[in-house]
Structure formats: structure tokens, C-alpha cells
Design a protein around this nucleic acid. Structure first.
Lengths: 186, 186
DNA sequence: AGGATTTGGGACACACTGTTCGTTATCTTA
DNA sequence: TAAGATAACGAACAGTGTGTCCCAAATCCT
């Protein structure tokens, strides 16, 4: 790839990210991004169709990273369908700044939905290979997927917002127990 | 309240809602809303500071409705902390059009986060009155709250996106079982 | 070194925002 | 029902951001 292009793209993505973190997605304009990146506005439009396009590509990169990161660790663990848990906790803690910046903002929602999709795919794949049989009263498998991922993202978001104080292993253990045994008895 | 004001507000909120459903939140402009509502743009700004303000008030109304709706039904049910489940399923099905329009769009995210907050408050209140004791390895109560609400919103969203075909009572039963006993054994 | 590509920056038309102001229509209340 | 208060209207305005175009200058690849 042309060095100029690579440099321009890197500068733009970097400027975009920092501005979103500072001011929130909606408040950031193309002009702002170009100003911070020291890139001409016409150059911006030579690479992206608009602000959304730039953001979408960032999310795609995150999505890809999650996928390769999760694929390597799938298969371990005892409870079926929950192999993603520990690696994800650790990955999130590793990128704590990024995750916390995304949590809450509108831009973050897009990213979180992307993460949700990746996790759903992972759980779906694990679950389909294990629980093929379903009795009459058993919930649809897709409901299980949404249940697991919903609960997981709930505690993950809370954990990150609180600063990820609890160690990932403990979070993983609690999540697995809740999923395997249900809510603790009163 | 002055009849003229009441009429104007009703028209604007109605126009806003229908336009958001049709085109998505971001694509709707103040001009669009005024055009459909047959209201002068200056009149709009006499009542709202902008598009976000109008939307925020709509969400507040929803939030209030959920609160009074849920408070009436809290207390029944066997599993602690899950009293909100059945009423919420039924309420959502009653407003299926609205919920489905919100699901996925950026505007919907704001509304869903509001719903999440209301549910969290409900679960928190129920749970605090029941499980006061915590052993050393027990998860923090707030983690339980996020776990429950996350899982619930996961299956609720899925259910609504699929057209709410399954009866609310069945959804409620499956959710309660998953929460009480954990994932079904393989 | 030279041809190809990218960048920068100005200019342009366009759309939406948020405000102001004078006129007209409508409501409340006495 | 009459009068004063209040709200709606519509037009105009400045400001901001968007997306596109062009051409000259800088930079790259071979």
C-alpha cells in the first residue's frame, strides 16, 4: 500500500478515536477529524464516504480482532457454550480504555452490537454441536443464545464501568456458576 | 393546559414517532417533523430545544409508563427478583409496533437503555429485600442484577424481533426456569 | 528520472439549525 | 361576549456542516 495512503488512514482513524472519546460520537465532525489529523477535507472524502464510514471500518477491525482472538481459545472449559467467557473478559480488560470510552456513547452502541453479534455466533456454534435434542418444553436454541449473551454483556458492561476491579478469573467463575446452576438460593 | 399547546405537542410527538419508525432517528429532521405535523418550525422551537429534546421527553413518558405498570404487578411469582418478567412481556407485546421500531435504531438504543434502567431498579429492589446475606464466594448483588436484566433484555429483544410469536406466559416460564435452574443439561 | 498517484486547499451548492420579529388566530377569564 | 393574554405562523437571517469539484504541488513506486 502507498505510504501516503497508509499514513493518512492511520492519522484519520487515530484522530477520530480520540475525538470520539473526548466529545462523544455525535459531536465530532469531519472537519474536526481532519483538523486534528492534519489532513485535507477533500483527502478525507477520497477515502471515506463520510463519518459513519470511518467509524464502521473501525468497528470492523474490532470485530475481526475479536473473532481471531476468540477462535484460538474456544474448546476449553466445562460448561458448554461458555468457552468465550474468560478470553473475552481478559481481552476487554486489556483494552479497558477503549471499552470504557465506548460504553454509553452512541458510537459505542454500534460497537457493542458488533461484539454481541460475534459472541452470538460463538455461542451458537458451541451450542449447536452439543445440545441437539430438544424436548417439547425446552426453549428454542436461539433463545438460549440470546439469554447467555445478554447476561454476559450485562455483567461485562457493569464490570468495565466499575473499572474491572474483579479479576477476570473470578468474573468467569461467577458467570459460569450462574449459567450452570441458576441464581443462588435465598 | 392551553388547548393550542396540547394540540401542538400531540401533533409533534405523533409526527416524530411515525417518522422515526419510517426513516430511522438520524434521518429525521426538525423540518420533517414540522411538515408532517403541520406546525410552524418556530412553534417547534417554542416548545423544544431541538430534536433530541422531543425524543427525550418521549422516552421519559415511556419510562414513567413502565414504572407505574411494573409497580402494580410486583410481588407475585415464586422466583425472587423476577416479578417484572411477565408484565413486561405482555406490555411489550401490547406495544409491539413501537418496540420493534425502536429495536436496532439509534434512537431505540436510548429508549432501551431507559428500559434497562427501570428494570434494573425493579430487580435491585426485589433482590435487596430477599437475599441480604452473602458468603465469601457469592457474587455481588449488583452483578446479579445486571445478569438478570441483561439476559432478560436479550431474550426480549430476540422475541420482539421475531414477531412475538411465543405467548408471553411461555416466555416467562422459560426465562424463570433458566434463571432458577441454569442452562438445561446436555 | 519520470510517470502515476495522492494530497491540499479553495470554491461551490445545498441542507439543516436555531433565533428573531411582526402579524394573525385562538384561548381564557372576567 | 368582550378584552387581554397567549400561542401559532411564516419569513428572513446568520451560522455550521456536508459532499463534490478542480487544479497545482508534493510524494510515491518502478
Amino acid at each position: 500500500m502507498d505510504r501516503r495512503v497508509a499514513k493518512t488512514l492511520a492519522l484519520l482513524e487515530q484522530a477520530h478515536l480520540s475525538l470520539v472519546v473526548e466529545n462523544g460520537y455525535d459531536a465530532v465532525t469531519v472537519e474536526d477529524i481532519c483538523a486534528r489529523a492534519n489532513v485535507g477535507r477533500s483527502t478525507f472524502y477520497a477515502h471515506f464516504t463520510g463519518k459513519d464510514d470511518l467509524h464502521r471500518r473501525g468497528v470492523e477491525a474490532l470485530r475481526h480482532e475479536l473473532k481471531v482472538h476468540g477462535a484460538a481459545a474456544s474448546g476449553d472449559g466445562d460448561t458448554p457454550g461458555l468457552a468465550f467467557s474468560l478470553p473475552m473478559f481478559e481481552h476487554a480488560r486489556g483494552h479497558l480504555d477503549l471499552y470504557r470510552a465506548l460504553t454509553g456513547s452512541r458510537a459505542g452502541v454500534v460497537a457493542m452490537e458488533s461484539i454481541r453479534q460475534v459472541l452470538c455466533e460463538a455461542v451458537r456454534a458451541e451450542l449447536s454441536s452439543v445440545a441437539a435434542t430438544g424436548s417439547a418444553t425446552a426453549p428454542p436454541r436461539e433463545l438460549l443464545v440470546q439469554h447467555v449473551v445478554g447476561a454476559y454483556l450485562g455483567i461485562l458492561t457493569w464490570w468495565l464501568d466499575a473499572g474491572a476491579q474483579i479479576p477476570p478469573r473470578e468474573m468467569d467463575a461467577m458467570f459460569r456458576r450462574l449459567m450452570g446452576e441458576g441464581l443462588p438460593p435465598t
